[in-house]
Amino acid sequence: MSFEQCQSITSLMAGFNKTWGIAGGWAIDHFIGKETREHKDIEIAVFRKNQLYLKDYLKEWEFKKVIKGEFHSWENEFLELPVHEIHASNKLNGAKIEILLNETKDNDWKFRRDLRISYPLTSVWSYSETGIPYLNPEIVLLYKVKNTREKDHQDFMTIKDYLDIEKKQWLRYAIELHEPKHKWLQYLFNLLC
């Protein structure tokens, strides 16, 4: 996979008039401006409140919701927490994307695993030089603190020096609240001293 696949998602989503962005490891790479590792899939983030708009927009796609690690057909019901992951396949060309539902309340993004953690909606997204929207890296990294895999740690080590003070402080605060024994806290502490 390459940035071209992300560009094709941007073309696909060009007429979708709700907020969305590339998520996961690809978001980290867009923030840096280069590919830093191999990616096996493309994930996009949308706000939960816009899920049915997205389903209506992608009429040629088949959707599966993930419940406790298992795929189930997603009809037209509004998906509530804990369901947050949807897999979509284009019935015409076989293209696949993973959709991650993100929580909002008023003018804030809310971390679905710990609703005490929030971020202003205006600070959740950025755009690459080529105009591709992506979830900001500090939010992507927060999602990666649960069951951190090697690729997640690689993403953290790649991006940590690119984050400004405010992003590092917010990430440290959020991890301390959610996973107070996580190994990234020591790195963040050292970066902030």
Rank of each mutant, 00 (worst) to 15 (best):
M1K: 08
E4G: 02
E4P: 00
Q5G: 07
Q5W: 03
Q7W: 00
T10A: 13
S11I: 13
S11A: 10
G15D: 10
F16G: 07
N17P: 04
T19H: 08
W20D: 06
W20T: 00
G21L: 02
I22E: 11
A23L: 05
G24R: 04
G24Y: 02
G25D: 04
I28Y: 01
I28V: 09
I28D: 02
D29N: 13
H30E: 15
F31Q: 07
F31I: 01
E35D: 08
T36S: 15
E38L: 14
K40P: 10
I44F: 01
A45W: 00
F47A: 00
R48V: 06
K49N: 14
Q51A: 12
Y53M: 03
L54C: 14
L54K: 09
L54H: 07
K55A: 14
D56S: 09
Y57V: 08
L58G: 02
K59S: 12
K59W: 05
E60V: 07
E60N: 11
W61P: 01
E62I: 08
E62M: 05
E62V: 04
E62Q: 15
K64Q: 12
K64P: 04
K65T: 01
E70P: 04
F71S: 14
F71L: 15
H72V: 13
S73R: 08
E75K: 15
N76P: 00
E77L: 07
F78I: 12
L81P: 13
V83E: 15
H84D: 12
E85N: 15
I86R: 02
I86Y: 05
A88E: 13
N90E: 11
K91Y: 05
G94K: 06
I97W: 08
I97K: 03
L101W: 07
E103A: 11
E103S: 07
T104A: 09
K105H: 15
D106R: 10
N107C: 08
N107Q: 13
D108Y: 13
W109A: 03
W109N: 10
K110I: 15
F111C: 14
R112G: 02
R112W: 08
D114F: 00
L115K: 15
R116F: 06
Y119T: 09
P120F: 04
P120W: 02
L121K: 12
T122V: 05
S123F: 10
S126W: 00
S126V: 01
Y127P: 05
S128Y: 00
T130A: 01
G131F: 02
I132F: 09
I132P: 05
Y134E: 04
L135V: 13
N136A: 09
P137C: 01
P137V: 02
E138N: 11
I139T: 03
V140I: 07
V140E: 04
Y143P: 09
K144I: 06
K146P: 02
T148G: 03
R149H: 12
R149M: 06
E150H: 06
D152V: 04
Q154V: 03
Q154C: 10
Q154G: 05
F156W: 12
F156D: 08
T158Q: 13
D161Q: 13
Y162A: 09
L163E: 11
D164N: 15
I165M: 06
K167A: 14
K167H: 14
Q169K: 14
Q169D: 12
Q169P: 03
R172S: 15
Y173C: 12
A174D: 04
A174R: 00
I175L: 03
I175M: 05
E176K: 10
E176L: 15
L177R: 13
E179M: 14
K183C: 14
K183G: 02
Q186A: 11
Y187T: 14
L188T: 02
